[in-house]
Nucleic acid binder design. Structure first.
Length: 295
DNA sequence: CGCGTTTGACCGGCGC
DNA sequence: GCGCCGGTCAAACGCG
């Protein structure tokens, strides 16, 4: 129903959020014909004030792959779940809300607290955690990002032959989750959506490898980077951090990925890089809210 | 043995 | 109110 209501029954869009958040235009899209591979980043923006900036960048692209000539290379998108509940609320799946469970202690996997003890107060809407999604051209579904993840579920995606996998950060008390799915439009494209904020350091920071891998981008991944208010530095960092790491041992992945980052999400506010300790690969790539500093 | 994955079932929200 | 469907759980299983 959700999909149909959005238009084409085959129009599967992992970034439904954006659709809603951005009324004046599709959040992003990828051009298969493009010589570039792109990593589309998208997420909720905690900084509504910047909206106007990126708004103008929203390329009129169709998720189905149709790119509006107006801004063929603007995949920049941002949305603010918090700011616009009625817009960015339903995220991922058009109808599926990002039901962010109440901050429950993530007991490193054994989340016994499930249906029994989740007395969600009536009317009390589950808080959505900041989400951050990006598309990556890769043969590998689960991209290395420096953190350790445990898969806790897999579901078939409507209108898509590819299943969606659900991962949870295995670090204690870290409630960060991520969904990984393949674009039905382009099987070679992996859509990863991060949800939550890491409250710990990256188990292993492979900045070195990431940086090296960054060399892959011989050409501007952000063709329109110049027009991206995010700041070129961000995009660069993003790309670098996006690169897969061999942290968990699934090494070869890095050489098979082709990342093209496009901060669909509003770029983090002019963040003095030095403000962020080395959290790992995601440090720069993910917006500040992803890294929740332990008090 | 510990950790991670698989997979079927269940829950809850939302659209109709 | 009902049904659909995304998200999550948890037991079983596999692997190192």
């Amino acid at each position: 129903m959700s999909n149909e209501s959005k238009g084409s029954p085959f129009h599967y869009d992992p970034f439904y959020d954006d659709h809603r958040a951005i009324d004046d235009g599709p959040a992003f899209s990828f051009d298969n014909s493009s010589m570039y591979t792109q990593t589309l980043v998208q997420g909720f923006d905690p900084y509504p004030s910047h909206m106007s900036c990126t708004d103008s960048l929203y390329g009129s692209v169709d998720y189905a792959g149709e790119i509006n000539p107006t801004t063929p290379q603007s995949w920049l998108s941002s949305s603010s779940a918090e700011a616009a509940p009625d817009q960015g609320d339903e995220d991922d799946c058009g109808r599926c809300k990002t039901v962010q469970q109440p901050p429950r202690e993530c007991k490193d996997g054994d989340d016994k607290s499930k249906k029994e003890n989740k007395p969600r107060t009536k009317g009390e809407k589950k808080q959505k955690e900041p989400r951050f999604a990006f598309m990556t051209k890769s043969e590998i579904d689960h991209l290395e990002d420096g953190y350790r993840w445990r898969k806790y579920g897999q579901k078939a995606v409507k209108n898509s032959p590819y299943p969606r996998s659900y991962y949870r950060c295995t670090t204690q008390k870290c409630t960060v989750k991520k969904r990984v799915e393949r674009s039905y439009e382009d099987p070679s494209t992996v859509i990863t959506t991060y949800e939550g904020q890491h409250n710990h350091h990256c188990p292993s920071t492979l900045r070195g490898s990431a940086a090296a891998a960054a060399g892959m981008f011989s050409q501007p991944l952000f063709p329109s980077a110049s027009s991206v208010p995010v700041g070129s530095s961000f995009t660069k960092e993003l790309l670098g951090q996006m690169l897969p790491s061999t942290t968990t041992g699934t090494g070869p992945s890095s050489s098979r990925h082709s990342y093209q980052g496009l901060p669909l999400q509003r770029p983090p506010p002019p963040p003095p890089p030095q403000l962020f300790p080395d959290y790992g690969l995601l440090q720069d790539m993910l917006p500040p809210f992803i890294h929740k500093q332990e008090p």
